[in-house]
Nucleic acid binder design. Sequence first.
DNA 1: CGCTCTATCTATAAAGG
DNA 2: TCCTTTATAGATAGAGC
Lengths: 218, 218
Amino acid sequence: MTRRKIQIKKIDNTTARQVTFSKRRRGLFKKAQELSTLCDAEIALVVFSATGKLFEFTSSSVQQVIERHGLLSSNFDRLNQPSLELQLESSTSAALRKEIAENTHELRKLMGEELQELNMKELQELEKLLGSGLRRVRDAKGEIVLKEITSLKWKGSQMIQENKRLKQMANRQVQTLELERGQSFEPIGDFIHPDPSQDHDSSDTSLKLGLVYSTRFS
Amino acid sequence: MTRRKIQIKKIDNTTARQVTFSKRRRGLFKKAQELSTLCDAEIALVVFSATGKLFEFTSSSVQQVIERHGLLSSNFDRLNQPSLELQLESSTSAALRKEIAENTHELRKLMGEELQELNMKELQELEKLLGSGLRRVRDAKGEIVLKEITSLKWKGSQMIQENKRLKQMANRQVQTLELERGQSFEPIGDFIHPDPSQDHDSSDTSLKLGLVYSTRFS
DNA sequence: CGCTCTATCTATAAAGG
DNA sequence: TCCTTTATAGATAGAGC
């Protein structure tokens, strides 16, 4: 895009990579902003640098949701703040913290006690112990990562399916009504385009578990 | 960016807006992809068009992580199959694995070498080293958990938002049609009641989204 | 000082009206 | 497709720590 054409592959030189990251990141965010404004699109963009630094952009309506969920905060605890819809198993992270603390404490204790009195064989035993301790910590964390992800993905899938179902039902309903009326009508456009005044109602991002309407005008 | 400079404000002409959306959207996604590749960044980008259509990009998928972990295979694969939409970035797990491997190796090496010759002070140095190694592993994993969860929650929020919008649209549509017809009608039952045979498709404790029917025929 | 990040400049590749 | 505008690679300098 500039003085010379470049290959799109990871930039080896660290400094050059950081500079490019900084420049392109800005360009990307600018374009995201422009697109959302020009075309009235809702956009959420999150970038983690290789060093873990976070950058984000969200168009206004989306932002509110995210903020309320306490996302994009570096604070883990805040991540797990109550969100009705996506209640995480934050208890697992507590368990994780606890286990790590215990393991660390145990390690320190082992290493601090009478090491002078240990012979080579005993020291090797200790090595094994430390190794397996590390492995256990690692495994425990892996378990927890997977549980979190499993749970979240599962819930995400539920949402997607529910979404599909709603769409199908809505379409079916519209079609049925059209058929009854014996003509097509415009409001379909309305169906597709949410009314902004309602759409930005942000007093509640949670799922309104609407009543399943099960009566028939009785 | 082109023949004439334009104002960054919503494009009035619908056709022009759609064309611009399409072009710029592609440009944006391309640049996101380039940035993630060039600079080894993790990126998640989601765009909803004004008509509610979803476009997304994530720098890599959770699927890969899971495969790499090779854990919980049977359960997990089933859970994760359906959701293209819920892909996570996790190139970081490779880095994690590497770090763990290195740490473990380093530990073993340290513990295996001339431990007989170390005095208490030196052993305490070693203790510190081991402790900080463990801490680094812990931190690395914590980072990754955080990223995964952040990404998943964020996408979950998107789904919720979309779901909510669909509900609102559906409700408005129903109301509009009823108003036009000036009478109640039967098919609503169909609309409102999800097909039971589908509804019990999973042992799900999840949210069942009913349409909120705000009736005025009572 | 060394290291990381940002700013500035220029010429050119890419975007997009 | 055309062709101007924008984005940005490359280089260098300066700021902040």
